[in-house]
Design a protein around this nucleic acid. Structure first.
Lengths: 323, 323
DNA sequence: ACTATTGTGACAAACGTTTGCCAACCTTGC
DNA sequence: GCAAGGTTGGCAAACGTTTGTCACAATAGT
């Protein structure tokens, strides 16, 4: 395992009998060099299996053609589509995506961003929970695009929180529910506050009561804990911050012998892997995450400070029923 | 959005009234500098929020303190633990982990590895399906550690395929099953061939028949397709390459009205997220994936060509029952 | 045939670090 | 008080690229 030195431009130049700069141009600016030389140099480079050193390439220009995708919780299946979409779009534009997981800790996200700072050309922040000022500060160094977080002047992609809440409340009220409870996630998550505000608004408009419970950790375990609180609240339908929590709720209710949807209806958010085969299958709100990933990278590379709002769709399954 | 120039060593040096080299040493080799100077320089650096440029740092030394983790399929929840464990261990050693997804395509994995080549100090390859020669070749450039793949002289971490097969066959035979079928995954996956070989061996020893079906894509959809083939095979118990497939099998069988475990028992591999709440909950083999992640990074950084075999544990749930 | 023009390739600087080497200073011991 | 030794900090080279500038050659126009 000697990990031998890589082939450099200089090696190729020597072999081809030309100057380093000629090789560089023959490869990256082919029109700046005569056809004869170009062919020759490219042939030699291919034969020697030359691979440009990204570090060295990025140093003078400051551009690395790498993008960072910082996710809040990589164990949340909701992120999958985002990752795939972002990677596809990045690859199409000739960029490499590096992925990092902040495990729900804003400080860790800050740390990761700082560490990656010099190596990437921009960041996609998914569901970031950092304070506004820090994002403004971070953007002074590198372009940024936000997923499920809105901030004036920043490019962002969000799913339609207002409409998803409308659909949920409409569905539950139609089933006869009048006493709802929202099982909240982290208070520093943008979606948490948007969801609560929209749910409260639509409930009021529909003549239903809704209580905000929590915050709970946005995980399966958080849902397990939230289930008991939701049950004690006297509500006949629970809306969870996300599907991870909702599935935890279902599990706990089954354990406690509470019939779903007989005694209690449950709704989630995200339509993650598992939402359709848990027990009972979960009524939840889906949005086109893969498209979100593509849009994010697109906005980031164009530096367009647009806000893209993606449509949402209520998927009614067996976890909701008449009161 | 001007993305202003970052603070460099030179800026700090000018501000502190010392030479660039002194700043460098004050920060990264504190004992090479007097206490007075060290304090002063460090204070200035902190005040200016100096962040070393990783590219520049890595260029002369060739060491970037970044590690690549290449996973076969990031949408497979089995990878979660691996990622978490690897990241934890990397962080502890002062390394940053960059994550990339090869979507099950060996060529894409090769492409990613080559692209990342100059930027990382080593690779962790999870369930790589590339041919041996390419791995040997890749190792000539950078150290490598393999997950669920064994190759002479390479550091690797594998789960105990022989023992997991023993437990599965033992369990099924004890329930009275004599006609088994294995729903295979990709033939270029090491685990696929190990699992089949071990299952065949233990079945023979226990006096049971086992048929190898497939290969099928190692996904939910693959499982859906495999279910019909498995059912037609006449076996009374199906063992799937992984849980994604097994869950797909369960879904399809439910759709076709086949009772599980009444008419057919189903076993998976990996104990992924969802295996305990799918319908019926899946009997599967678990292994300590997070520990695997840690061990992989450990081996990689030590360059120890050891093979670590992790224990496995059959989790019996409701998808298996008496014949 | 000589100049003007274009095309081609080389030289060298720059990016931000780390580090080998050396000079100067300070301390210590005689 | 002087030499020897150790400590400290600066100079400059190196890492592998890209790119601005320039010189030279080939070609074309007169």
């Amino acid at each position: 395992m000697d990990h031998g030195r890589a082939v450099t431009l200089e090696d190729v130049a020597r072999e081809a009998g030309v100057a380093v700069s000629t090789v560089s141009r023959a490869l990256s600016r082919p029109e700046r060099v005569s056809a004869r030389t170009r062919e020759h140099v490219q042939a030699v480079a291919r034969r020697m299996d030359y691979r440009p050193n990204l570090l060295a390439r990025g140093l003078p220009s400051g551009r690395t053609r790498m993008l960072a995708l910082l996710v809040t919780d990589i164990t949340n299946p909701h992120q999958f589509g985002l990752i795939r979409g972002a990677e596809a779009q990045a690859a199409a534009a000739g960029y490499t995506l590096v992925l990092a997981d902040s495990r729900g800790l804003p400080e860790l996200e800050a740390e990761l961003a700082a560490r990656l700072g010099s190596s990437v050309d921009g960041y996609v922040l998914a569901s970031s929970r950092r304070p506004d000022e820090e994002l403004v500060e971070l953007r002074r160094r590198r372009p940024l695009a936000l997923y499920n977080r809105e901030l004036a002047g920043f490019p962002s992609v969000v799913s339609d929180q207002d409409d998803s809440s409308r659909q949920i409340v409409g569905h539950l009220v139609a089933l006869g529910h009048r006493a709802l409870a929202y099982l909240g996630g982290p208070r520093n998550a943008w979606a948490e506050n948007e969801r609560w505000a929209a749910l409260a608004r639509h409930s009021r408009a529909a003549g239903a009561e809704i209580a905000r419970l929590g915050p709970f950790p946005p995980t399966l375990e958080g849902g397990v804990a939230a289930a008991d609180v939701g049950l004690a609240s006297g509500a006949t339908a629970l809306v969870a911050f996300n599907d991870l929590m909702a599935i935890g709720v279902l599990r706990r209710l089954e354990q406690r012998g509470v019939a779903v949807p007989g005694a209690l209806s449950v709704v989630g958010h995200d339509d993650i892997f598992g939402a359709d085969f848990c027990h009972p299958p979960l009524t939840t709100v889906a949005s086109p995450v893969e498209e979100a990933g593509r849009a994010l990278v697109g906005l980031l590379l164009d530096s367009r400070p647009d806000t893209v709002v993606l449509p949402t769709e209520l998927r009614v399954r067996a976890s909701t029923g008449p009161r």
